[in-house]
Design a protein around this nucleic acid. Structure first.
Length: 480
RNA sequence: GGCCCCUUCGUCUAGCGGUUAGGACGCUGCCCUCUCAAGGCAGAGAUCACGGGUUCGAAUCCCGUAGGGGCCGCCA
């Protein structure tokens, strides 16, 4: 049977990283098995509709390359793919349940949600709706209908017995029916609840593997009961452990890293994000950690999804991102870097060369401005103490002398190419009978004004150009 | 409160009855090097949440306990 998975987000306005991982796994499983990956929009809560948020979903899927085969924008054989456009379908199936005694109309007011007698609670009986409308006689129902009372449709659950389903990752899970309340299937406004729409749509859309967060585990028996009431085949259920923040709580958007857009804005590559979240709850069974999307498709296996929740660790994401940046072609890297370079760098420097120098040293793209700021503007207030470096045996006086010599030597250079500059500095060091370090150190400090630079002295000098290099050397000599 | 689930280095994880409990990030040190990185090498870091069993033998199987998470919405 063809594998069909789906990503069914509700339009909230941003793409939560946990949801993205669910989408990823569903996508990978479909691709791995030559199946179909569908997108379904779950917009059944009219009160929570957020303008344009469906666009965020499309954009997130596009930028990460999680292409769906069927969906609202692409069509497909089992549409419509937006739940708000499927209302007649839910109505039809709800009525079928009504007719067959698996559901009933509930005329209770919203607030009437009935307190349970204390002793009943102590016995561990259900806390939810008490099912009173389920006990209405046909005559009472008709009378309420005749009065035009508004109603919802609830699932009728016999409180005897239990239901067991087999979760693909968590194994068999059993819940006593008395724990299950008569959940609402169709709301007063005619829209279905998630609980109902999900079951109906997953079945009608031929979903073979239902993947979702593990917060649905407890409710799944209710869905199983629905499948059974309809006489439908039960799909494979794959519940995924949560992704937690650094403090062990559920990743929230307040943290600033819960949304895909946050991560992208920080300069993480989409593929690195995919790679990282894939590893949160799944492993390939080998020691490989670097994966392209194609590599993930090749190696992904739902059998290796774990049960324990995982903490989101941005430090490791950074490392993985650096691996992906390194793996980029120079052209691709430059195109990306250009978006993060300060304007002045792009305008006044050979940015292509710069990219070449630092591609292997960039962790995340948003570091670029800080990494390159010294090129555009020398902070002349830097401490002269930087010239003193024990390992390279440099001192203040020595540095001054070296810089004075270098000033003349570099000024006399006929060409400002990397090789010429390096050769000249080397020749000078040789003549002095010194190693390169004692000469390069003062030079680099002088022209960068900082202890740590993303690249070496000669590269910096080449980027800076002759006049600016000499100017900075002069400034340094003046300071010393 | 009831029910469900989870628990191996700080973090992500391997492990599926016999391993010196392996790898990765991070951390420390060394090497390399025109700096820092990167790269290479090395090291520290886990009494496998705890307590009982079962077994010749348990991180692995069973039962408890504790801690954490989830569900109990006309949200999804």
């Amino acid at each position: 049977m063809e594998v069909r998975t789906r990503f069914a987000p509700s339009p909230t306005g941003y793409m939560h990283i946990g949801n993205l991982r669910t989408a990823l796994y569903a996508y990978l499983h479909a691709r791995k098995n030559g199946g179909k990956f569908l997108l379904r929009i779950e917009d059944t809560d009219q009160a929570r509709l957020v303008e344009d948020s469906v666009k965020v979903i499309y954009e997130s899927l596009r930028v990460t390359g999680l292409e769906h085969d069927e969906g609202p924008d692409k069509g497909g054989p089992v549409g419509p793919y937006v739940q708000s456009e499927r209302r007649p379908i839910y109505r039809e199936y709800a009525e079928k349940l009504l007719k067959e005694g698996h559901a009933y109309r509930c005329f209770c007011e919203k607030e009437e949600k009935t307190e349970k007698p204390a002793d009943e609670e102590q016995e561990g009986l259900l806390l939810g709706y008490d099912g009173r409308c389920g006990r209405l006689s046909e005559a009472e129902v008709q009378a309420n209908l005749a009065k035009g009372l508004p109603f919802v449709i609830r699932q009728k659950i016999d409180k005897e017995g239990s239901t067991t389903f087999n979760d693909f990752v968590y194994g068999p899970i059993t819940v006593e029916h008395k724990q299950l309340d008569d959940q609402i299937l169709l709301k007063r406004d005619g829209y279905p609840t998630y609980n109902f729409a999900n079951v109906v749509d997953d079945h009608l859309m031929g979903i073979t593997h239902v993947m979702r967060g593990c917060e649905y585990i407890s409710s799944t028996p209710k869905y199983i009961l629905l499948y059974k009431a309809f006489g439908w085949e039960i799909p494979e259920h794959i519940h995924l452990p949560h992704i937690l923040d650094q403090s062990g709580k559920k990743l929230s958007k307040r943290e600033g890293s819960a949304a895909l857009s946050d991560l992208l804005n920080k300069g993480y590559l989409p593929e690195a994000v995919l790679n990282y979240i894939a590893l949160l709850g799944w492993n390939p069974g080998t020691e490989q950690e670097f994966f392209t999307k194609a590599g993930l498709i090749e190696k992904f296996d739902i059998a290796r999804i774990g049960k324990a929740p995982a903490m989101f660790d941005e430090t490791k994401l950074s490392w993985l991102n650096a691996q992906h940046v390194k793996a980029l072609t120079p052209e691709a890297a430059h195109k990306l870097f250009l978006k993060f370079y300060p304007e002045k760098i792009v305008k006044e420097f050979d940015a292509v060369k710069l990219t070449g120098f630092i591609q292997g040293k960039v962790e995340k793209l948003s570091d670029l401005p800080a990494m390159t700021a010294f090129l555009a503007q020398l902070d002349e207030q830097y401490s002269t103490e930087l010239f003193v470096h024990a390992k390279n045996k440099t001192t203040l006086e020595g540095s001054k002398a070296v810089l004075k010599d270098l000033e003349g030597i570099l000024n006399a250079l006929p060409s400002w190419e990397y090789a010429f500059i390096l050769a000249a500095v080397k020749a000078y060091a040789d003549a002095k009978g010194a190693k390169l370090g004692p000469v390069m150190w003062p030079l680099r400090i002088a022209i960068s004004g900082q202890a740590v630079t993303p690249t070496g002295a000669v590269e910096i000098a080449e980027l800076l150009g002759k006049p600016e290099t000499l100017r900075r050397i002069t400034v340094a000599i003046g300071k010393l």
